[in-house]
């Protein structure tokens, strides 16, 4: 066949495949917005559920998710950023650093439900935290650790080597060099990773199934040792476990969850692209 024509056909096929990947995003968003928007009201967002979740709002689920995400970040960000600093700034390419890298790859690949099992085994049972916000946050925190380590690592590696050399040559110690000549320039990248981690933790259901989530709990959690509702689990519950929930309530819950997660991701994308454009070196 004429190579020009086969090129045309091939490009058309590739374009079609790309549309197949991207269009569903648009379709899913459109469906959820179209069917869920009517449920969104002040009352829906800021009041307690009533009558076995068939009426009232989803405030405890929203707050529960915020608490969980906050807890996960408090736990995972310092640990993840420091682990990334270890990998980039301290370990040369030795056995230990290879082991750590392999561990991160595998942490990223462990199924989320297995994190749930782990959280159940260690935090709920072994440490005796029970099904609680604390257990759930820690479980989610370990789950998002690889996200945070990987993006912090990329951010640190993108800081040019000579910043370190110059700083050390001026008599700064190793930590001073990291603190003053590396971290400030890696900060936007680290923040991006943090936001991505937030988004991931906010949307996950399986890790919180057995570690924190309450089926129906029409009050707000009082302490970190309380159970709590959470948005993704709530969506699961009202769409599969409880019959007779109005369709727009389900879609409305999905819309709230999706908005939260996508806004976080959008923020990360914007932050990253602005950071890349601003970079002067």
């Amino acid at each position: 066949m004429d190579p020009r024509r086969s090129q045309k056909i091939a490009f058309a096929v590739l374009l079609l495949a790309t549309l197949l990947v991207v269009l569903p995003v648009v379709v899913i968003l459109a469906i959820i917005v179209a069917k869920g928007a009517s449920a969104i009201s002040w009352d829906f967002l800021f009041s307690m559920p009533r009558e076995g979740m068939s009426a009232g709002g989803i405030l405890p689920a929203i707050l529960g998710t915020l608490y969980l995400v906050l807890g996960a970040v408090i736990f995972a960000v310092p640990l993840g950023v420091m682990a990334a600093i270890y990998l980039v700034e301290y370990s040369s390419d030795n056995r230990m650093s290879r082991l750590v890298k392999l561990a991160i790859v595998n942490l990223a690949g462990v199924p989320s439900v297995v994190y749930g099992l782990f959280g159940l085994g260690i935090f709920v049972t072994f440490f005796g935290f029970g099904a609680s916000i604390l257990s759930g946050s820690l479980t989610l925190g370990i789950m998002i650790l690889p996200v945070i380590i990987t993006s912090s690592r990329e951010a640190l590696e993108s800081v040019p080597k000579h910043f370190r050399t110059v700083s050390l040559s001026l008599g700064a110690s190793r930590w001073q060099t990291i603190r003053h000549s590396v971290l400030p320039h890696a900060l936007p990248g680290i923040l991006t990773g943090m936001i991505l981690g937030l988004g991931r933790a906010a949307g996950e259901t399986a890790p919180i199934l057995f570690t924190v989530a309450a089926f129906y709990l029409p009050r707000l959690p009082q302490s970190v040792f309380d159970q709590s509702m959470a948005l993704p689990y709530h969506l699961y519950v009202i769409s599969t476990q409880v019959p007779g929930i109005a369709e727009n309530v389900r879609y409305g819950t999905a819309l709230v969850l999706l908005t939260l997660v996508l806004l976080l991701n959008l923020a990360a994308i914007v932050l990253r692209s602005r950071f890349r454009r601003k970079k002067k070196w």
Partner: peptide, 26 residues
């Protein structure tokens, strides 16, 4: 290209429970 990459990143970000919900219902 940049737009498509962002779109795919967003697809990756949609919580699995939302995708399950849409799959189940449509």
């Amino acid at each position: 290209r940049e737009a498509l990459k962002a779109g795919i990143e967003l697809l990756a970000a949609i919580p699995s429970v939302v995708i399950g919900f849409i799959g189940m219902i449509t």
